[in-house]
Computed example of a mutant assay.
Amino acid sequence: MAVSPSGFGPLLRAWRDRLSPADAGFTATPGRRALGLRREEVAQLAGLSVEYVLRLEQGRARNPSAQVVGALARALQLSRGERDQLYRSAGLLPPRDGTVDTHVPPGVQRLVARLGDVPIGVFAADWTLVWWNPLWSALVGDAALLPVAERNLARALFGDGIARAAMLDISSERGQDAFEASIVADLKDAVARYPADAGLDALVRDLMATSETFARHWATRTAAVQHATDRKTVRHPVVGDILLDCDVLLVPGADLRMVTYTAATGTADADRLDLLRVGGVGASRA
Score class of each variant (00 low, 15 high):
10 P>S: 11
14 A>E: 15
15 W>R: 13
15 W>A: 02
16 R>N: 02
17 D>M: 15
20 S>T: 15
25 G>A: 10
25 G>C: 09
26 F>E: 08
26 F>M: 10
28 A>C: 12
29 T>V: 14
36 G>V: 12
36 G>P: 05
37 L>D: 01
38 R>K: 01
43 A>Q: 06
44 Q>Y: 03
44 Q>G: 03
51 E>L: 12
51 E>F: 09
52 Y>T: 12
53 V>S: 03
56 L>T: 01
57 E>M: 14
57 E>G: 12
58 Q>E: 10
58 Q>C: 10
61 A>N: 02
61 A>D: 06
63 N>K: 09
63 N>R: 14
68 V>T: 09
69 V>P: 01
71 A>S: 14
72 L>K: 04
73 A>W: 03
74 R>W: 07
76 L>Q: 03
77 Q>N: 06
78 L>R: 03
78 L>N: 00
81 G>S: 11
82 E>N: 07
85 Q>A: 14
88 R>P: 02
91 G>M: 14
94 P>F: 06
95 P>C: 04
96 R>T: 03
97 D>F: 13
98 G>W: 12
103 H>W: 15
103 H>C: 02
107 G>T: 06
107 G>K: 05
108 V>M: 11
110 R>H: 04
110 R>G: 00
112 V>P: 00
112 V>Q: 00
113 A>S: 13
113 A>Q: 03
114 R>Q: 15
118 V>Q: 06
121 G>Q: 08
122 V>R: 00
122 V>T: 01
123 F>E: 11
124 A>K: 08
126 D>A: 13
129 L>E: 05
129 L>V: 09
130 V>I: 14
134 P>E: 02
134 P>G: 03
135 L>C: 05
135 L>G: 01
